[in-house]
């Protein structure tokens, strides 16, 4: 074994004049924003989300119209007391899939591609990256959800004009449509947090689907008394409470629903923060 200790004096600091940079929260936010929009999958998924939000409402509206004008010998129960809002919100179920997948891709994609190593060497304190991701994606999903819902409503309403489903854009209707945007924003962040916790695109998508579809489905197998206690507090039902136009007995109030969903989202983001700080990248 050879060990030679170098005793030379340390060389001078770099001789080239160097500008002073600094890692900032704003910079990190800009970085996440630019990362989000600089991959093709973002544009594709955003387009899919908008198509789903507007398209499914449109299809539902046409079906409703033809049933109503076709003498209505048997109208689907779903359509009996449909409104242009309820028809529009058909699209939310599909829109949330697209936005959920995009949230997972945005967060877990960093791990599956390895780009997390670049990200975290630039921002080694780590948490600002998560806050920025959540902010970027929360805003994007909310805006897309809201724009999609309003656009869907305008189209749907035009199609069903002259029928019982037609509505004017009252405060309640606007609350419902904004509620859909809020729901999509929060559920999108929840999906991103799941992706960040699981660090895998496939895992994140599976977990997201479990949250919005599987768990509510499983719950219907439980005794009814349990369903009544637990059901309204699931993320999907809490979300439905936010955007449904007419209060339903088995749902929370819109305000409570928003709080409950926010609670779930905060919990998931906290989990992601804990994972991010505690584990090697």
């Amino acid at each position: 074994m050879t060990t030679v200790t170098d005793t030379r004096p340390a060389a001078a600091t770099p001789t080239v004049p160097r500008p002073v940079y600094k890692v900032t929260g704003r910079g990190t936010l800009r970085s996440e924003w630019s990362k989000f929009w600089s991959v093709r999958s973002t544009w594709i998924t955003v387009a899919l989300a908008l198509i789903a939000l507007v398209g499914f409402g449109t299809i539902a509206a046409f079906r409703y119209k033809s049933m109503m004008s076709g003498g209505a010998r048997h109208v689907d129960r779903d359509f009996l007391d449909a409104t242009s809002v309820s028809l529009t919100l058909f699209g939310v179920n599909f829109g949330q899939l697209a936005l959920g997948v995009l949230g997972v891709l945005f967060a877990a994609g960093e791990y599956t591609t390895g780009s997390i190593r670049s990200t975290l060497t630039a921002v080694p304190k780590r948490l600002p990256v998560l806050w920025s991701k959540v902010a970027v994606y929360g805003v994007v999903a909310f805006v897309i959800g809201t724009v999609g819902s309003f656009a869907g409503f305008l189209v749907t309403n035009a199609i069903v004009s002259g029928t019982a489903a037609h509505l004017s854009l009252t405060g309640d209707v606007a609350r419902s449509l904004f509620g859909a945007g809020l729901y999509l924003g929060l559920i999108g962040v929840l999906a991103a947090a799941l992706g960040a916790i699981l660090r895998s695109v496939a895992g994140g998508i599976s977990a997201f689907i479990a949250v919005i579809m599987l768990i509510p489905g499983l719950l219907s197998l439980l005794p009814t008394s349990w369903q009544g206690h637990v059901g309204p507090y699931l993320p999907s039902s809490a979300g439905e409470a936010i955007y449904t136009l007419h209060q339903q007995s088995d749902l929370l109030t819109p305000g409570k629903g928003a709080l409950v969903l926010l609670g779930w989202t905060v919990l998931a983001v906290a989990g992601a923060a804990w994972r991010l700080v505690g584990r090697d990248a």
Binding site: V23, T24, G27, T28, R30, S31, S34, K35, S38, V39, R40, S41, G109, E110, T113, G114, S115, I116, R117, S118, T121, A122, V123
Partner: peptide, 18 residues
């Protein structure tokens, strides 16, 4: 450590922003 879907320029720009 690089997202394969991002261009070289975009990768470097995103790092620079931070």
């Amino acid at each position: 450590s690089i997202h394969p879907g991002r261009t070289a320029f975009d990768h470097l720009t995103a790092l620079a922003y931070t």
